[in-house]
């Protein structure tokens, strides 16, 4: 009985792991196959052909797309954290009138459907002359990351002991010094967590990137992959697409493996504690 339960348990673990990993595994082995080899199904890696990996950089400015994604996501993370930490201090530790209403508004914004702001955002970005530019995308992506950054950092900020802040006030610190000299170092782990989440959100963003860019050179990775096309409209270059997918997924997987604990902490802080 006990053995049966144990076997069943491990079987379940294996099934889940298989289900989670197989698509990525299959993308990898597909990315190493070219030409007509792709038109037969293979379950095991049999060839190791890197031509898809060269093709993905030759047929479109994929290197440029990756760089764009890094610039956009990096800037979004820095801006969100810079704005978010000061705001989180105010929301998390100071009682002022209208605080919970505003905090709830911000939470509500983080649940906005992106498409609801699409028309207005399009107009805004055009009027700033930012259409088809990276700053335009950075601005748009802040709408996705800033509210939840504030929200998650606020929940972390609330956990810090009150007396440390009071000791700093007795020592003569202004609120700004408290944030910069006392809380910023203490918030570093939380900021890493939140920054990672913001990075992933921004790295994966598609709708804005698709709508607010026009040329291949300005696209970030998701629209670049979505819009990859082959020689004819009916034949998608699956091998190249899989190669591109593998390239952009590997850094994310590394991040997840390294920062697994922090990411989980951030996800649950935003939801459960909130």
């Amino acid at each position: 009985m006990k053995l049966l339960a144990r076997t069943g348990f491990w079987l379940l673990v294996i099934v889940i792991a298989f289900f989670a990993l197989f698509p990525f595994y299959y993308a990898i082995i597909s990315s190493f196959r070219t030409g007509s080899a792709l038109f037969s199904v293979a379950y095991w890696p049999e060839t190791f052909d890197l031509s898809n990996y060269f093709a993905v950089f030759e047929r479109q400015p994929f290197g440029r797309n990756i760089l764009n994604s890094i610039i956009v996501s990096g800037s979004v993370v820095v801006l969100s954290l810079a704005l978010g930490i000061t705001a989180a201090y105010a929301f998390g530790r100071i009682a002022f009138r209208g605080r919970s209403l505003m905090l709830m508004t911000i939470l509500a914004v983080s649940m906005f459907p992106q498409v609801a702001v699409l028309a207005g955002m399009f107009e805004l970005i055009r009027s700033f002359g930012l259409y088809n530019t990276l700053p335009g995308l950075i601005l748009a992506n802040l709408m996705l990351t800033l509210p939840f950054t504030i929200w998650v950092l606020t929940t972390f900020m609330r956990e810090l002991p009150k007396e440390i802040e009071e000791a700093a006030f007795v020592d003569g610190a202004t609120p700004w010094i408290v944030v910069r000299r006392v809380f910023l170092p203490l918030m570093a782990p939380a900021a890493v967590t939140t920054g990672l989440l913001a990075f992933i959100v921004s790295w994966n963003e598609f709708l804005f990137a698709l709508t607010f860019t026009l040329t291949n050179e300005r696209r970030t990775v998701p629209p670049a992959i979505a819009l990859m096309s082959g020689s004819t409209a009916y034949e998608l270059p699956w091998g190249t697409i899989m190669a591109g997918s593998v390239i952009v997924t590997i850094p994310i997987i590394v991040l997840v493996l390294v920062f697994q604990r922090k990411i989980v902490a951030g996800l649950t802080a935003g939801a459960v504690k909130g």
Binding site: T86, A87, F96, V109, A116, L146
Partner: peptide, 26 residues
């Protein structure tokens, strides 16, 4: 309290600009 308003002002402006305003325009 004064610091609180100062600290949330930038975020408030950004959120209003990139979420509130576009929504209103939509």
């Amino acid at each position: 309290v004064r610091a609180a308003w100062l600290f949330i002002a930038p975020s408030l402006i950004v959120v209003t600009l990139i979420a509130g305003w576009p929504l209103a325009r939509t």
